[in-house]
Simulated scan of single mutants.
Amino acid sequence: MNSEFTIAVHSLVYLASKPDRMATSDMIAHNVNTHPSRVRKVLSILRKHGYIATKEGVGGGFYLKCSPEQASLDEIYRATSIGSIKPSWCSGNVEEDCKIACNMAEVMDHIFCEAEQHLLSYLQCMTISKVLERVLAAEQQK
């Protein structure tokens, strides 16, 4: 899985936690502990999919455009990371007469596709609001 999904969820939860639900990319990057240009790349994806918008000028930044209660993690995963659960690898020498090597890639592709479907089913029940609740609960337990 790539880190875009984690950066996207973290950014959206951060924006949802702000009273005005707005922050600059530098503020978000500092909170995510990631380079601002990488955060801006992910924010661009989120903007394209309607989760956030931007306000130009003094006091501007990125703001949450979606409802945290309605933004499900499966949709965010689809926007940022679909297909990333499958590693890029090639198994065996398919030129040899070997039923394992010749069929392993196809079988593993199906396994990773099935695993991703299970992941999406789980993420469908989770929203940005629920993640924020968990973050706040974890803070209270400290």
Rank of each mutant, 00 (worst) to 15 (best):
M1N: 01
N2F: 07
E4I: 11
F5T: 00
I7E: 03
A8L: 01
A8R: 00
V9F: 03
S11L: 02
P19Y: 08
D20N: 09
D20E: 12
R21C: 10
M22V: 14
A23T: 04
I28Q: 06
A29V: 00
N33D: 10
T34D: 08
S37F: 06
R38V: 04
V39Q: 00
I45S: 11
K48R: 14
H49M: 13
G50R: 11
A53V: 07
E56T: 12
V58K: 15
G59P: 03
G61R: 01
L64H: 02
K65I: 03
K65D: 08
E69N: 10
Q70H: 10
Q70Y: 09
I76A: 12
Y77E: 07
T80R: 04
S81P: 11
I82Y: 10
S84F: 03
I85S: 08
K86E: 09
W89D: 08
C90S: 13
C90K: 09
S91G: 11
V94Q: 15
E95A: 05
E96H: 06
A101K: 03
C102E: 00
N103G: 09
M104H: 05
M104L: 15
A105I: 07
E106G: 12
E106K: 14
I111Q: 12
I111M: 14
I111F: 13
E114L: 09
E116C: 06
L119G: 01
L119Y: 00
L119S: 04
L120M: 05
S121K: 14
Q124L: 06
Q124N: 12
M126T: 14
I128Y: 14
I128F: 13
I128D: 05
S129T: 00
V131L: 00
V135H: 03
L136G: 08
L136C: 09
E139F: 06
Q140P: 01
Q140F: 12
K142T: 10
